[in-house]
């Protein structure tokens, strides 16, 4: 990694595990839960957030000395809203089916706390390159959790991955279904996402006990 100094690498790698936006910083949970019933939607959502957060962090960082402190929230909201409109229009143009599944949740990237959180905590105090790395890192950390949750929910709930029947056909009773395996419909309903994230937090904190909360 000649391109990135050690500090820069940490900016990207930290949010992937020990400073994960979802499981540790408790940011951006709303969208993480609602759209993870399918892996495909999770991946698209992750990519959208990577784009919005990466570009947004750079823009805010470039403007950080020009924005009056009092109206910074509105300025930030406008920057995010513009980027999200771009994402939304691109999705509608090239992946119409998916943009229907995601419905209002693309718009809700605007109020995704990760974005405002990183603008406030990082982009307002750092240069564009660092802000870019921080944005990409945090969005990747968000995406990783999204993809893990989406993977388990789609695999256990529908027996598919990206819509491909990996466990065999439940109607024709082929593959794993021949042995009497059934899909777990519980994983499809929205509250299951919360429980899966809860379990991920459990696993992560058992591995790294420094993260355990007081209460």
């Amino acid at each position: 990694m000649a391109l990135l100094s050690k500090k820069d690498t940490n900016l990207i790698l930290d949010p992937l595990a020990d400073n994960n936006p979802i499981t540790i910083q408790v940011l951006g949970i709303c969208s993480a839960l609602a759209i993870t019933a399918e892996l495909k939607a999770s991946v698209v959502m992750a990519i959208s957030v990577i784009f919005v957060l990466g570009v947004g962090n750079v823009v805010i960082s470039l403007m950080r000395n020009m924005i009056p402190n009092k109206i910074r929230i509105i300025v930030q909201l406008i920057v995010v809203a513009t980027l999200v409109i771009i994402v939304d229009q691109v999705l509608k143009a090239f992946a119409y089916e998916l943009s229907k599944t995601l419905s209002v949740f693309v718009g809700l990237i605007i109020t995704n706390c990760i974005i405002m959180g990183r603008f406030e905590a990082f982009a307002l105090g750092n240069g564009p390159w660092k802000a870019f790395l921080d944005g990409i890192g945090n969005a990747l950390g968000y995406g990783v959790i999204l993809i893990i949750v989406g993977f388990f929910r789609e695999l256990l709930g529908s027996g598919t991955l990206f819509g491909i029947k990996v466990l065999g056909d439940p109607v024709a009773k082929s593959g794993l279904y021949a042995t009497g395996y059934e899909n777990n419909g519980f994983m499809i309903i929205p509250p299951a996402a919360l429980i899966v994230v809860g379990l991920i937090i459990w696993v992560q904190r058992s591995k790294n006990r420094a993260l355990i909360e007081e209460n």
């Binding site: 919360l194 429980i195 937090i201 459990w202 696993v203 058992s206 355990i212 209460n215």
Partner: peptide
């Protein structure tokens, strides 16, 4: 490890 955030989620 479940204390705080984890148990709230569940």
């Amino acid at each position: 490890p479940l204390r705080g955030l984890g148990i709230t989620f569940i």
